[in-house]
Design a protein around this nucleic acid. Structure first.
Lengths: 349, 349
DNA sequence: TTGTACGCGTTATCAA
DNA sequence: TTGATAACGCGTACAA
C-alpha cells in the first residue's frame, strides 16, 4: 500500500503553494506564468500525481461515477461501460434480479454513494425509490421499458411493436390460430408483453388468447435461471393438450424470446413435430444465437444496445447540466423483423 | 438535488457534539451513556442520516468499492455483484475487450479511484499494471486464467483439464483423427487453449495438430462479436478440404465453446452432414444453451461462477486484512463432462 | 501572478 | 461519558 502524492507534495517540490498548483493543474487560465505552469506540470508528471477522488468529490459534490441498475448482467451492457469510460466516468453496478425490494435498495445505495446519476434498465413499476429520486431532481434515466413513471426521462424499446410485428408476420403467412409462450409474472417487462399479446390477439378477433397462452414458470433468483427449461416444460403442456392432426389446434406459437423458442423447439422435436412444417415458431426478441441454431429463428430484432447507449449519453448530459431539451425526455427505438426458417404457412387452413 | 443530513445536523438536534454522534453511530463500545445512544440513533433515523462516503473515504482511506476488470460482461458475473453487495461493497466495473492497452489503463484508473481491491478476470499476460499493483501490495486477485503472474493470488479454472477431458472423451469413443476449431490469437485464454490442444494431441501421438486446427478469425472490438459466424466460416474451410467419404478425414472436432460448436454444426448440417453420425463434435466449454439446441452438445462444464465468487471472497478478506493463508494463494476448480448427443463412435475406424 | 485561509463531512486523539 | 480540535486532500474566494 503506497502513499499517494498530493498537491502539497508538488508544491513543496516546486516551491509554490498548493493553491497555485491546484489552479495550474485544473487549467484555470491566465492565473499563472508560463514558467510556473511548465514546472508544475512537469513535476506533477514526474511524481505521477493522481488527484485524490475522495477529496475532490467531497469538495465538488461530484463523483464522476454513474450508477447502473439492471435485472441481470449481459453482453449488451458492454457498450454502456465503454461510453462511460470514454466520457471519464466510472460505472457502479447493481443487479436487481428483478426483485422489487432489491431494486429499491440498490437505487438508494447508489444514490447514497453519490453517483452522479443513475441508469435504470427496465425497472419494476411503482418503485418508491425512483419516484423519490425524481422528486429530488436527481439525474435519472430509465431504459428499455418504463411504466408508471410519467415524469422520468425514458429511452424505450418498442415492446408493443415487437409483439405486433411478430403476430403480424404470422398472420401474413396465413395463421389465425396462434398460441404463445411467455411469462406473465416475472418482471414488469414480461407483464407488459403479456398485456400486449392480449391486446394484439383480442384486436384481431382471435380466440382465446388466455387459453392458448402457455405461461413460463419462473423461479426467483437464485433458484433457477433456466428459461430454456421453463419453455421446454410449457411446450410439453402444449403437446399434452393438442394432437398433431387436430385441425383446430394452434398452427403457430409466438415465443417471447429466442431462448424460449429454443426450449420449445426441443420439446416439439422430441415429440416428432417438425418446425415449421407442423408448427411455426416466431421469437419476439432476437439474439445472435437465433441465427445459428439448427432451424434459424424468425424473430424480432430489438436494439437494446442502442437504446441503453442513448439513455446513458442523455444521463451524462443531464449530470453535466447541459439539459437543453424539454422534460421529460422520451424516445422510442425501432425494430426489425429477421427472417429465419422457423415459420411458414400454416399446416391447416 | 437535495442537501444531505450530516453528523452535525444530528448533533444540533440532540444537543451533542459531532464527535459523540460519530462515536455512537460507529458503535464504539462503552463510550456513551445508554440514553444518549438512544437519542442519537433515533434522531439519526428520523433525519434519515446517511454517512457521506466521500468524506469517510477521505478519512479512512477506504472506499468500500471493489473493482472488477473483465474482457466482456456476462451473466456469470451476477454472482460476483451479489457477493459484493452482501458484504457491503459496491462494484466498479471495467471492460477490457481483451485489449492489453485498455486492460492496463482500466486497472490503473480503478486504482486511482481508490477501490479497495481489484478482481481481474483472465487478464492478458505480462500486464505492467498488474505487476505494479502487486509490487505495491495492492489487494489484487486473478480469476479464471493467469499466466506469468507467479506472485499474484489466483483462482483458476482447469483450462488444461477441459481440453484433456474433451479429447479423452473422443478417444474413449474410438476417435483418433481429431480436428479442432479454436482461436489462436484473440485472448490469452485462447492462446492457452491452443497450447493445451497442441500438447494433448502431440502427447497422444496424433497427426498434425497444426494442420487440423481450424482457427477462428476474430476481429477486435467493436467490429465483430459473432463468434458463431467465425466458427461457421471455419467449418466451411473444413468442408472445402474434406469429403464426407474420405476415410482419412477427421472423424471428430473439438470446438472450443458451445457457440463455436453451434456455428460449426450449422455449416455441417447445411452441407448435409449429420451430427454425430458423420462427425462428432464436442465443446470444451459448456453453456446452458448447449443442452437445448437441437443436437444437445457433449461438452465440458466449467464452473466460472464458483471460481470468480471464491476469488472475490478471497479479495475481500484481503482488503479486510484478514489474510490468514500463505502467499500467493492458489486454487483450481474442477470440471464435469456433460453427455449430450453430438458425439458418438467414429464413422470410420 | 501567487499565497492565505477556509470548508467539504468524517474519524481519531486527547483532554475535560 | 463527552467535546474540542486536528487532520484527510482538494478547490476557491479573497487578499497580497
Amino acid at each position: 500500500v503506497q502513499k499517494a502524492v498530493t498537491l502539497s507534495d508538488i508544491g513543496k517540490e516546486v516551491g509554490l503553494s498548493v493553491a497555485t498548483v491546484s489552479q495550474v493543474l485544473n487549467g484555470k487560465s491566465g492565473r499563472y506564468s508560463k514558467v510556473t505552469r511548465g514546472r508544475v506540470i512537469e513535476v506533477a508528471r514526474n511524481l505521477n500525481y493522481k488527484p485524490n477522488m475522495a477529496a475532490r468529490s467531497l469538495k465538488t459534490q461530484k463523483t464522476l461515477t454513474i450508477g447502473l441498475v439492471v435485472p441481470v448482467l449481459s453482453m449488451e451492457l458492454d457498450e454502456v461501460e465503454e461510453i462511460c469510460a470514454s466520457k471519464g466516468y466510472t460505472l457502479s453496478l447493481a443487479v436487481s434480479h428483478n426483485d422489487p425490494g432489491r431494486q429499491h435498495d440498490k437505487i438508494l445505495e447508489l444514490r447514497q454513494k453519490h453517483v452522479d446519476g443513475i441508469v435504470l434498465v427496465h425497472p419494476r413499476k411503482d418503485c418508491k425509490a425512483v419516484e423519490q429520486l425524481r422528486a429530488e431532481g436527481y439525474p435519472l434515466v430509465i431504459s428499455d421499458v418504463a411504466v408508471n413513471y410519467p415524469e422520468v426521462d425514458t429511452f424505450l424499446i418498442d415492446l408493443k411493436g415487437s409483439i405486433r410485428v411478430a403476430v403480424q408476420h404470422l398472420v401474413d403467412l396465413g395463421h389465425h390460430r396462434i398460441a404463445s409462450i411467455l411469462s406473465q409474472s416475472d418482471s414488469h417487462y414480461s407483464q407488459l408483453r403479456y398485456k400486449y399479446w392480449k391486446e394484439e390477439t383480442v384486436n384481431r378477433g382471435f380466440d382465446s388468447y388466455e387459453d392458448w397462452c402457455f405461461p413460463l414458470e419462473r423461479m426467483p433468483y437464485p433458484v433457477a435461471k433456466s428459461i430454456y427449461h421453463s419453455s421446454y416444460q410449457s411446450a410439453r403442456m402444449f403437446l399434452e393438450r393438442f394432437e398433431k392432426d387436430d385441425p383446430l389446434r394452434p398452427t403457430a406459437i409466438m415465443a417471447i424470446t429466442d431462448r424460449v423458442a429454443m426450449g420449445a423447439i426441443k420439446a416439439f422435436e422430441e415429440a416428432g413435430w417438425r418446425i415449421p412444417e407442423d408448427i411455426s415458431i416466431i421469437s419476439a426478441e432476437a439474439t445472435e444465437m437465433g441465427r445459428f441454431c439448427s432451424t434459424p429463428l424468425t424473430s424480432i430484432e430489438i436494439n437494446h444496445v442502442k437504446c441503453r447507449s442513448e439513455a446513458l449519453i442523455h444521463l451524462i448530459s443531464l449530470t453535466s447540466g447541459e439539459d437543453k431539451g424539454s422534460r421529460p425526455a422520451r424516445r422510442t427505438f425501432g425494430l426489425e423483423l429477421v427472417y429465419g426458417q422457423s415459420t411458414s404457412r400454416p399446416c391447416f387452413l
